[in-house]
């Protein structure tokens, strides 16, 4: 029994890792005032690029870097449409998702069903991994897990404590005032969208080269959308995103745990999505003001307009 619990929690951390990465990226992006609904597509691009590069070069970290670069470049499309051309961000994000899923399907077609032989070894943290229960759950994990947590903390520090981070937040809350302070709103928004894209692509890389070690079309399976919900759940705070993401990782894993008990697999597959709605409802019931997004989220900014 103890083994099952430890194993379940261990897997919940693994399943939560891509959610945390994508959520952190979306938090940064939304804090600058840009809603990016395209992260499902960026994730798919990241997954396929990481897989192809890793498979051809045999270097997983090269795959990761290629994925991040591809994700950043790909999200410039959304940045250009929504910042420079002031397009509707909801529709632009959807278009990015369609395009990302499509392009990844086309790029990855020759690689469907080919297993990746490279193994990313778990990093066993000395001393800490000897702690009963916790050691196995938290300190015997793949590199992506630690990376996701470090990046989430770093992003929190970046947004709350650094000058650039504060400027990014101000472009999301009050771009006019930010511009009056000499900040270039569009430049910071570009930066935030691109950083967010890099994070989503990293999440995708985790899926294809570490989590499932294979590529299939549509393997992101709605995780990008869940990350957008988690951004709200985390109240636009990367620190809160950490436990939010791992809680949802748990919803993914509990499916496999409960399946042997004869519960319908389809019902269990619904769980993460029902939980998303339920938790948003709970936050809203408890304190609706908390759901306050960055004031200028999804509002195009026109320079010089009074």
């Amino acid at each position: 029994m103890e083994d099952i619990i430890v194993l379940t929690l261990h897997r919940a951390m693994v399943a939560g890792t891509p959610l945390l990465l994508a959520t952190t990226g979306e938090v940064i992006c939304e804090r600058s005032g840009i809603l990016n609904l395209g992260i499902e597509g960026v994730m798919a691009i990241g997954a396929v690029v990481a897989f192809i590069v890793t498979m051809t070069t045999g270097q997983p970290w090269l795959g990761v870097f290629a994925a991040i670069a591809a994700g950043m470049a790909f999200s410039i499309i959304h940045a250009f449409a929504s910042i420079t051309l002031q397009a509707n961000q909801v529709v632009s994000g959807l278009a990015l998702t369609m395009l990302g899923l499509g392009l990844s399907g086309m790029l990855g077609k020759p690689y469907v069903g080919k297993p990746l032989s490279i193994k990313m070894e778990d990093l066993v943290i000395p001393w800490l991994s000897d702690i009963p229960w916790l050691g196995k759950i938290l300190f015997t994990q793949g590199p992506f897990f630690y990376l996701a947590i470090i990046l989430a903390f770093a992003s929190w520090f970046f947004l709350e404590r650094t000058r650039l981070g504060i400027q990014i937040r101000s472009t999301g809350e009050n771009p006019k005032a930010a511009e009056a302070q000499g900040v270039s709103v569009s430049r910071l928004r570009y930066l935030s969208v691109i950083i967010g894209g890099g994070f989503s692509a990293l999440a995708g890389a985790h899926l294809s080269i570490s989590y499932s070690k294979s590529w299939i079309e549509g393997m992101t399976a709605g995780r990008g959308w869940i990350a957008i919900a988690l951004t709200i759940f985390a109240l636009w705070n990367p620190g809160r995103a950490i436990w939010a993401a791992f809680l949802f990782g748990g919803f993914f894993v509990v499916q496999y745990l409960l399946q042997p008990l004869g519960i319908s697999p389809s019902f269990l597959a619904m769980l993460p999505y029902i939980a998303t709605l339920f938790i948003l409802l709970l936050i809203s019931l408890k304190d609706p003001r908390k759901l306050n997004a960055p004031a200028m989220l999804a509002e195009p900014y026109k320079r010089g307009e009074r």
């Binding site: 597509g41 499309i77 250009f80 449409a81 051309l85 002031q86 397009a87 509707n88 529709v91 632009s92 959807l94 278009a95 990015l96 998702t97 369609m98 395009l99 990302g100 899923l101 499509g102 392009l103 990844s104 399907g105 086309m106 077609k109 079309e217």
Partner: peptide, 23 residues
Amino acid sequence: GLPAATVEIVNGTLLIFLIMGDY
């Protein structure tokens, strides 16, 4: 012999250019 995703590429590209055209 193109993958099913081709239609999504066409659709996504069309949508992006349509909203860009609005500008």
